[in-house]
Design a protein around this nucleic acid. Structure first.
Lengths: 334, 334
DNA sequence: CGTACCTGCTAAGTCGATTTATCAAAGACC
DNA sequence: GGTCTTTGATAAATCGACTTAGCAGGTACG
């Protein structure tokens, strides 16, 4: 196995000095190298299949062309892991490598993990979180570029889903289908704590704004902060038992919608004919249902990509950037 | 922002040479440094909060204490992404950093991605795949340690789920519950192609072996290679319509089981009272069902961790290592 | 007493790049 | 002809660690 060619090899091959080689290959201007010499360097590099050693370059320049992606637990999260893909793709486009680390259920590990990343001399830090909430982060050196994806921390640029718009769009979708008597499952005072969620209040606000704009109140509501199928199932049954009259259900997320489907089916009600269902998140689950679920997608991949771009493109980072949540039309609203 | 301390700073602080500092901090033996000098070095390092620069160290030693995790698309896969967590944790334990890259739907990108990782001088390559199948990989330099997780390639060590054992265990679980008339959904000739799946034949083999050992044939079967809810739904309805008599259904995976649940519910059959359901994979979905699904878990996280350990622990790598698939008891088998 | 051998430590070279400071030769100018 | 610029290139320093080869000074031995 032959060793890789170094700049010195290229210099020898071209009959020039390493200085010249370095200047040419880095495309430096105002450098008074003749075009003929430059061409000799490029040809020699080509012949030897030269590529610079990133380690040596980093040692000299202090920059590593790498960034850290630190998360709480997106890899083990049903759908948030797409955030990683977005960040990886955007980084690769720019020739950057991504160093990953996860702290799992132990936020106290953040400090050590971040320190280890800084030690590795990453050029920037990307933090990604499973659910959009306010987080505490260890002190970061000034000047080290940092972006939060799906999370909020004092003084750091953040990327979040545009929940208010999504709330309005969800209601408007139901209104557009002619629904006037709408039920809502999943309101809760508890999620107003920013450390539990930084975005759900916006979702509520959008929903309420759209309803108010249409001059409507919800025909029924089932409260609850544990957004699991059980809530959708019990909530739907309770509303039906209360003899509430509604033609559509808006659910807090897809898992709740799943529970609602089960309750509706038990009662012999068909989706979307008897009751339309509209939801948020777009988990994989949404495609399994019968009929598949119409829902507002959480744009994880886009958020990941945007985060990496903001970090690397050296633009003045906005304090908070909202990424649109697309309406995914599937058939549960008619 | 003060600069980091270097070895030279420590040497000055201790009143000794950098050579001594290096020898002491690397814990070299047979080096004839007095305990007193060593102590002075350690104290100086402590005072200055010194930690070695990995870039400089890598340049000199040729090793980076980093490994590449290259995958097809595990980040966007519902549950395989846990593989990443396993690898991250095992790497971190050993002081290694993980560089991630994904090629998505474009396997032709593998070559470029691997080249870029090798350029970064990773100490080893970990390949992770969404579904266990035979894969084509670019030529790798000899001597570069490589392990495949959930995939197979000629001449490279691989880590796979112990599907044969799992197949047997699944059938045995049903037998232990007293079932004798068992239906099976999801057999297919097509998945016998190793480029589609390297492990499903083992799953079938285990299932068939356990049935044969009990002297039983399946009471009914529904074939199909697209293991989505639709198959479970239609398959179950067809078997019921054929007046097949069975007390349990074994499904090829959880999504198929999900479809089976829907069909059973439509026909007024209760799980597990009327029909038990037993499955494979343990997707998140399995916990959403009513009752939650009993299934053989694909041990993604364990496979990821084992892969990283094999890569880093320099053991003689076995050509293929099988990781047990645990039985997750949830309530769909009584 | 002279040589050999420890002991404890360090000077200097190296890894592969980037960058600063110069240098030789040729041309410009008076 | 002598001085000043410009041109085209390079030697050497540097980044921060690891590693090889040695160097003083003391002790042991014949």
């Amino acid at each position: 196995m032959k060793k890789r060619a170094t700049q010195a090899d290229v210099a020898r091959e071209a009959g020039l000095s390493v200085t010249t080689v370095s200047l040419v290959l880095n495309g430096r201007r105002n450098t008074r190298i003749s075009e003929e010499a430059a061409e000799r360097v490029r040809e020699a590099a080509e012949r030897l299949d030269y590529s610079p050693d990133p380690t040596a370059r980093s040692l000299r320049t202090g920059r590593t062309r790498s960034l850290a992606f630190v998360s709480d637990g997106v890899t083990v999260t049903r759908y948030a892991s797409a955030m990683i893909r977005g960040a990886l793709d955007a980084a690769e486009e720019r020739g950057y490598t991504v160093l990953m680390a996860e702290v799992g259920e132990r936020p106290e590990r953040l400090e050590k993990v971040v320190a280890s990343m800084l030690e590795r001399r990453v050029d920037g830090l990307l933090f990604g979180f499973m659910s959009a909430r306010k987080v505490g982060l260890p002190a970061l050196p000034r000047g080290k570029r940092t972006v939060l994806i799906n999370g909020v921390a004092d003084g750091l640029p953040a990327i979040l889903p545009a929940e208010q718009d999504a709330g309005e769009a969800a209601v408007n979708r139901l209104l557009a289908a002619g629904h006037r008597r709408i039920a809502f499952i999943g309101r809760s005072e508890r999620v107003l704590d920013p450390y539990l969620s930084a975005t759900i209040p916006q979702r509520y606000a959008g929903i309420d704004a759209a309803m108010a704009a249409a001059g409507l109140d919800f025909a029924a509501e089932a409260e609850g902060h544990e957004w699991e199928p059980e809530l959708g199932y019990r909530g739907t049954l309770r509303m039906l038992d209360d003899a509430a009259s509604f033609t559509a259900i808006l659910t807090a997320n897809d898992r709740v919608a799943f529970g609602a489907y089960q309750a509706l089916q038990e009662r012999g009600l068909r989706v979307p004919h008897d009751v339309a269902v509209m939801s948020f998140d777009d988990e994989q689950l949404a495609t399994y249902l019968h009929p598949p679920l119409t829902t507002m997608r959480l744009p994880y991949r886009e958020m990941g990509a945007l985060g990496a771009r903001m970090l690397l493109d050296e633009e003045a980072p906005a304090p908070a950037t909202l990424v649109p949540m697309p309406l995914v039309e599937r058939g549960s609203v008619a």
